[in-house]
């Protein structure tokens, strides 16, 4: 007699917890043959709101963590991903990927995590400057994370499209609320499980699943979100996100990249979610030109 498989409930990820959507609603996704793969949370506006609150709460602590520590945590995520490699391959294949492509995708996701782990304590040096002002002041510009970022993940990718946006955001000290691919959501929740076992503080990454048509709006117009990131090419969605951003002058970054490529990772994706802060301080110049040193 064959063993009965235990099915996974795909829940959303908010503030380090895995609640069901507060709305109680769900939607079903199917594989190519029309077989139901899972019941996915159909998150509501309120879930997004809760996720933003969690992200805001986590922001100060995450941004102020030492860069080295952020790097350690990202590397830990890579370790956890590696341990779940087969699970991701399985999920990607359930969602229609070939084995070769599934392996490529998870391997790239793991390696990309290591890549951004390395950036955590380096991008500052490349993006900052000491500015030679004419007056008796020391003047320098450093980058700081923009804040809470809402990420609308790439629709055509279950894992790499989402991971490629989350990593530069959190490597740079931001916290985020992610809307997973509507049609390929499985890996997003498994990825959340990885994050939850990786020393990543609760609330740094929050992931919701649901309908873009419903959730772009709360993701885009929440007044406590500082930037919105979008991956894809849907002109209507992009226009809508840009319009929603106006109310609090959100930064909007839209990408139309082939994420499953080694090229699609770089310093400038981190830079896109950084603010430049310039600091001035007088220099007491005793002796001035007459001092020899």
């Amino acid at each position: 007699m064959s063993r009965l498989e235990v099915l996974k409930t795909y829940k959303i990820y908010i503030g380090g917890q895995f609640p069901r959507t507060e709305s109680g609603r769900y939607y079903q996704i199917q594989d190519g043959k029309g077989k139901v793969i899972g019941n996915i949370c159909l998150s509501s506006k309120k879930d997004v709101r809760n996720a933003v609150s969690a992200a805001r709460k986590a922001f100060g602590g995450w941004a102020e963590r030492s860069a080295f520590n952020r790097s350690q945590i990202l590397y830990r995520i890579a370790e956890m991903l590696e341990g779940r490699r087969d699970q991701f391959i399985n999920e990607l294949m359930i969602q229609g990927a070939s084995k070769v492509n599934a392996e490529k995708e998870i391997d790239l996701a793991i390696d990309r995590t290591v890549y951004y782990a390395g950036w955590c304590d380096k991008y500052q040096q490349l993006l900052s400057s000491v500015n030679p002002v004419s007056s008796a002041h020391f003047n320098f510009s450093v980058v700081e994370p923009t804040g809470v970022v809402s990420i609308i993940a790439d629709e055509n990718s279950s894992l790499i499209g989402m991971v490629s946006l989350i990593l530069p955001a959190i490597a740079g000290g931001n916290t985020c609320v992610v809307l997973a691919s509507e049609t390929l959501p499985l890996c997003s929740i498994t990825f959340a499980e990885v994050l939850n076992t990786s020393d990543l503080p609760a609330g740094v990454v929050n992931i919701v699943t649901g309908k873009k048509a419903e959730l772009i709006e709360p993701m885009g117009n929440h007044m406590d979100v500082n930037a919105t990131v979008y991956s894809g090419s849907n002109a209507d969605e992009i226009k809508k996100i840009k319009e929603l951003a106006v109310q609090n002058v959100k930064r909007v970054k839209t990408y139309n990249k082939k994420w499953i490529s080694d090229e699609s990772q770089d310093l400038y994706l981190i830079a896109d979610l950084q603010e430049v802060k310039t600091t001035w301080h007088p220099i007491e110049n005793i002796g001035g030109a007459t001092s020899s040193y």
Binding site: S129, N131, P132, V133, S134, S135, H137, N139, S141, V276, T278, W280
Partner: peptide, 8 residues
């Protein structure tokens, strides 16, 4: 204070 070299 303002300076051309200083981002604003």
């Amino acid at each position: 204070k303002f300076d051309p070299t200083s981002p604003f």
